[in-house]
Simulated assay, not measured.
Amino acid sequence: MLMITSKPPPIDDPGGLDQTEAAALYRLMTWLSPAFPVGAFSYSSGIEWAVEAGDIADATSLYDWLAAMLSCGSGFCDGVFLAATHRGAAAGDKSALREITELAAAFVPSRERALETTSQGRAFIDIARAAWNCDRLGPLIAACDGAIVYPVAVGIVSAAHAIPLAPTMHAFLHALVSNWISAGARLIPLGQTDSQRVLAALEPVVAATAQRALNASLDDLGSATFRADLAGLRHETQYTRLFRS
């Protein structure tokens, strides 16, 4: 049985949030909520094939698969792209944004993975412009000059709204893991309690991956989750599918 063993950090300041902090928290909770309509529920990032192949069969094997994807695969890489984008957008570096956007779009290993991340990125940008627009957002989007993948979209929008990078990173990786668990729960299937056990057990992995991504540069990009990459490729020809990737 998966159990969380790490203790939460002590609360140093019991006071409330100021207006800026409260607005940032509200927006992050909204944008990275499962209810935010970017269509994340329709993608499994190859988990559907992994379940059919028997690689994922229960809560423990789901945890092992997701921990690897997060720390050694697409989770870490997406975190690096988010951080680089946020910093480039905050500095107004249009040249950097264009290069990051191009590299991030080229970094996906399969056609379905490209569909997943570009579709979510486009939806995130469109909804942000429709409901959460601000003066800086339009010029930053225009500077990208190409298909915007999901972590790049989150980096642009959060920087445009002056939301700090660190909480954005943690919220993004939490949302990513939550969606993966949701897919696994429907496919294995898992009950709600086991799903929460997996999410709780992944907390230190999310925190460690977030810290690595925050300290990394684009030169540190790299993935070693070959089985997960193959799962994404094989899903394209899977006979029976519930998910788009």
Rank of each mutant, 00 (worst) to 15 (best):
Leu2Cys: 01
Ile4Thr: 11
Thr5Ser: 13
Lys7Asp: 04
Lys7Asn: 08
Lys7His: 10
Lys7Leu: 12
Ile11Ala: 09
Asp13Ile: 08
Leu17Asp: 04
Asp18Met: 03
Glu21Thr: 15
Ala22Cys: 12
Ala22Gly: 00
Ala22Trp: 15
Ala24Tyr: 11
Tyr26Arg: 14
Thr30Val: 13
Trp31Ile: 08
Leu32Pro: 00
Leu32Lys: 10
Ser33Ile: 02
Pro34Asp: 01
Phe36Asp: 02
Pro37Cys: 12
Val38Arg: 12
Val38Cys: 06
Gly39Ala: 03
Ala40Gln: 12
Phe41Leu: 05
Ser45Val: 06
Ser45Phe: 13
Gly46Gln: 04
Glu48Ile: 05
Glu52Ala: 15
Glu52Gly: 02
Gly54Cys: 07
Gly54Trp: 11
Ile56Arg: 05
Ala59Glu: 14
Ser61Asp: 04
Leu62Met: 13
Asp64Val: 10
Ala67Gly: 05
Ala67Leu: 04
Ala68Cys: 10
Gly75Trp: 00
Phe76Val: 02
Asp78Gly: 13
Leu82Trp: 07
Thr85Phe: 02
Arg87Tyr: 01
Arg87Trp: 00
Gly88Phe: 06
Ala89Met: 01
Ala91Glu: 12
Ala91Asp: 14
Gly92Arg: 09
Leu103Ile: 06
Ala104Lys: 02
Phe107Gln: 05
Thr118Arg: 07
Thr118Ile: 07
Ser119Thr: 14
Ser119Ile: 00
Arg122Trp: 06
Ile125Phe: 07
Ile125Thr: 03
Ile125Val: 15
Arg129Asp: 02
Ala130Ile: 07
Cys134Thr: 14
Asp135Pro: 08
Arg136Leu: 13
Arg136Tyr: 03
Leu137Gly: 03
Leu140Pro: 06
Leu140Met: 14
Ile141Ser: 02
Ala142Trp: 01
Ala142Thr: 15
Ala143Asn: 08
Cys144His: 05
Ala147Thr: 09
Ile148Val: 15
Val149Phe: 10
Tyr150Met: 09
Tyr150Cys: 08
Gly155Glu: 06
Ser158Ile: 03
Ser158Arg: 00
Ala159Gln: 10
Ala160Leu: 00
Ala162Glu: 15
Ala162Asp: 15
Ile163Ala: 06
Pro164Val: 07
Ala166Thr: 04
His170Asp: 07
His170Trp: 03
Leu173Asp: 01
Leu176Cys: 07
Val177Cys: 08
Ser178Gly: 09
Asn179Ala: 09
Asn179Pro: 00
Ser182Glu: 07
Gly184Lys: 03
Gly184Asn: 07
Arg186Ile: 00
Arg186Thr: 09
Ile188Met: 02
Gly191Val: 11
Gln192Ala: 15
Gln196Cys: 06
Arg197Thr: 09
Arg197Ser: 10
Val198Asn: 05
Glu203Pro: 02
Pro204Phe: 10
Val205Pro: 01
Val206Ala: 03
Gln211Phe: 03
Arg212Gln: 07
Arg212Leu: 14
Arg212Glu: 04
Leu214Glu: 13
Ala216Trp: 12
Leu221Gln: 02
Ala224Leu: 03
Thr225Asn: 05
Thr225Ser: 02
Thr225Val: 13
Phe226Cys: 01
Ala228Met: 12
Asp229Gln: 14
Leu230Pro: 00
Leu233Phe: 08
His235Met: 05
Tyr239Asp: 06
Arg241Trp: 05
Leu242Thr: 11
Phe243Glu: 01
